[in-house]
């Protein structure tokens, strides 16, 4: 199921705030060469995977979001 960049950002915004989360997701998607406003499930997970490599709270919140991403489809 395709999801908007904002929907992906919403997975980590409770930990880092909306503006920071949106900036992280948009920058990461762009760096991965993903254009457009919507991402397929595999692309969402790729974006979270890259953010998850960051140190500290940003990385931990992305790893947590990735581990529970499947709940969005239930």
């Amino acid at each position: 199921m395709a999801r908007s960049l904002h929907e992906v950002a919403a997975l980590i915004s409770p930990s880092v705030g909306e503006e920071k989360a949106r900036a992280l997701v948009a920058e990461t998607a762009q760096a991965l060469g993903m254009s457009g406003e919507r991402l397929e499930t595999e692309q969402c997970l790729q974006v979270l995977e890259v953010i998850a490599k960051q140190p500290g709270l940003v990385g931990i919140s992305a790893r947590f979001a990735k581990s529970r991403f499947h709940l969005l489809n239930e």
Binding site: V16, G17, E18, E19, K20, A23, G56, L57, V58
Partner: peptide
């Protein structure tokens, strides 16, 4: 009490 990344808006 927890991490606050640079760029956080609040």
């Amino acid at each position: 009490a927890c991490g606050i990344p640079r760029g956080t808006s609040f």
